[in-house]
């Protein structure tokens, strides 16, 4: 009886220790967050940094509130979010579709191999001007930019995943005279689902890169456009505000994909 009580006490202590550790970490994260903004504000006030170039948190906040009130910031955020989400989805899905074709037609895959390597090594944003010429200056080009940065890497990662599936699963299906497509559907695809899910997280980050660069190049709307515009008219408060918004949106999207990932993994 006494021994059991003692064990329970130890267990409680262990749990409390974990909770304490978590609180402590969180505290420091908050402290760091606040001190960053305080330091930024102070250094701007006392001209340790040039307030014209680096703005200040208060100015950024005032600008954000004002722009959200008149609705203009909402439009810009919406445009960028829309482009990023679409670019992300298109890039991921197209990548998986191409990988599927590569697996279904091994000869085709062998032929394509060196081209995939080159395309992968190439900095995709360098294609920006060509995409704009081809698709015209507008949403389409920017979404294409968001997609193109993730397509090739998704293709390569997912295709490698397909190839690594234990061939004995295929033997089981082949013994029932399954076609290659059935083998894909019943064994390859489900076995590689974890790989595909893990590419989602990478692709979210890549889509942001593509879209912001795309907006730098052509757009008349969006957060990337605001950064360029702010830079041109020397309004660095606007630049900083856009950066803050991008950071928030990207983090939220990343977290959402992470949630989706957990959900999918549990389901499988």
């Amino acid at each position: 009886m006494g021994a059991k009580k003692h064990e329970l006490k130890l267990f409680k202590a262990y749990q409390q220790n974990i909770i304490r550790e978590r609180k402590w970490t969180f505290c420091w994260q908050i402290i760091l967050f606040i001190s960053f903004f305080i330091l930024w504000e102070l250094s701007s006030r006392f001209y340790w940094i040039d307030p014209l170039l680096f703005s200040s948190p208060l100015k950024v906040m005032t600008l954000l509130i004002e722009k959200f009130k008149d609705g203009s910031m909402i439009v810009h955020t919406q445009v960028t979010l829309f482009e990023t989400i679409l670019g992300f989805i298109i890039g991921t899905i197209l990548g998986i579709i191409i990988a599927t074709f590569l697996w279904l037609f091994p000869r085709f895959a062998k032929i394509m191999d060196p081209y995939l390597v080159i395309l992968n090594a190439m900095p995709k944003v360098a294609l920006g001007p060509i995409i704009i010429v081809a698709l015209g200056p507008g949403y389409t080009s920017i979404i294409a930019m968001g997609a193109i940065v993730s397509i090739i890497i998704t293709t390569i990662v997912v295709y490698t995943g397909f190839k690594e599936v234990d061939p004995n699963y295929l033997k089981v299906l082949q013994s029932f005279r399954a076609t290659r497509w059935t083998c894909f559907k019943e064994a390859i695809f489900p076995a590689t689902l974890p790989v595909m899910i893990s590419t989602l997280k990478v692709n979210v980050g890549l889509a942001w890169v593509g879209v912001i660069v795309g907006e730098f190049l052509v757009s008349k709307e969006g957060l990337g456009y605001l950064i360029v515009y702010g830079f041109q008219v020397f309004d660095f408060t606007l630049v900083m505000s856009s950066l803050v918004l991008i950071a928030i949106c990207a983090a939220v999207m990343y977290k959402m994909v992470e949630k989706l990932e957990n959900m999918l993994i549990i389901k499988n």
């Binding site: 234990d166 033997k171 013994s175």
Partner: peptide
Amino acid sequence: LGYMLQQDYLFPW
């Protein structure tokens, strides 16, 4: 034909 392989290779999913 029915072929039962040496290992079971049941699909885990």
